[in-house]
């Protein structure tokens, strides 16, 4: 009898412990990871699969990721085919029904967002198109707002006990974002309509939000490496337009961009879509955008 009581107490303590345990959250990329940490605070353990410096289209489906997904309570994925080359084989081996479609633990960040550049026809002669639209949507703070809300909803559905905390964290983060965004707008307003070149078409959302023109790419078509002919075209366009900046991400070929910069007198600005992709931005979406906006504004205003 006494043993039974002890057993019950131990059992109850066990249940209480699981209620207190942190949610295991796996995010495919570091932008979702940063938002998950901001919203989840002390009640989540966040693991990010893709390294912030690597090409998010081509991540290796390492077996260790299967283990992480197997033990996850929540998966946050882009949901716009950015991870279609590596997430499906991982999920095939995951055996975690909490992450099945329709479960609250499966957060598809893009849900409900209006994506840009949805192709009207799918044709791979146009390069590597994404059927659902351009998947690099997190570079627009407005989209990040929606995603943060999705994440909070997901967390609350999986862990209702901490709904209030998630909501409070969310509101706090949104407030910070509002304040920051006003500053970013101010920093970039003087350059409205200015053209900025890029290697890959990763920045249409950022450009739209901040009134820039980021429509000139070193890649002739999405996912196709820069050809000499394309570089000549780009160089001519940059000279005509007096384009002063080429943004380069950590995994992109910097030497090609440097050659174009040398030929046009433009400068290279280090850009990254993922917190941690630039020094000092690890796990912090706001710090990343801070850095993007300030370095871009500084270089654009330099003589």
């Amino acid at each position: 009898m006494k043993n039974l009581k002890l057993f019950l107490i131990a059992g109850l303590a066990g249940t209480a412990m699981t209620a207190d345990a942190k949610l295991n959250v796996v995010a495919t990329t570091a932008d979702f990871g940063a938002l998950a940490q901001a919203v989840g605070g002390d009640f989540v353990n966040v693991t990010v699969l893709a390294k912030p410096t690597e090409d998010p289209h081509f991540v290796d489906a390492k077996p260790s990721y299967i283990v992480k997904l197997n033990r996850a309570d929540v998966l946050i994925e882009g949901g716009a085919e950015l991870e279609s080359g590596w997430l499906p084989p991982l999920l095939d081996g995951t055996r975690n029904t909490k992450l099945a479609f329709g479960q609250p633990g499966r957060v598809r960040a893009a849900e409900g967002l209006a994506l840009l550049e949805v192709p009207t026809e799918l044709d791979r002669s146009k390069g590597d198109l994404h059927a659902m639209g351009n998947p690099h949507y997190m570079t627009d703070p407005e989209n990040a707002r929606h995603v943060a809300k999705h994440i909070a909803e997901g967390f609350s559905a999986v862990d209702p006990a901490h709904t209030a905390a998630f909501e409070q964290n969310l509101q706090g983060w949104l407030k910070q974002l509002d304040a920051k965004e006003a500053v970013w707008q101010k920093q970039l307003t003087p350059f409205a309509g200015t053209r900025v070149a890029a290697v890959h078409n990763s920045w249409p959302y950022f450009a739209r939000r901040f009134g820039l023109k980021m429509d000139l790419f070193l890649e002739p078509k999405p996912g196709i490496p820069p050809s000499p002919a394309q570089l000549v075209t780009v160089i001519e366009a940059m000279k005509r337009d007096v384009t002063k900046v080429i943004v380069v991400e950590p995994y992109q070929n910097r030497r090609t961009a440097e050659a174009v910069a040398a030929a046009t007198g433009a400068r290279i600005v280090d850009f990254a879509q993922y917190p941690g992709g630039l020094k000092g931005t690890d796990g912090d979406y706001l710090a990343l955008l801070d850095k993007l906006v300030s370095s871009l504004a500084a270089t654009l205003s330099a003589k």
Partner: peptide, 11 residues
Amino acid sequence: WKWKPANAGAG
């Protein structure tokens, strides 16, 4: 065994 640097582009 595979090695791929942290800033790999297109694999």
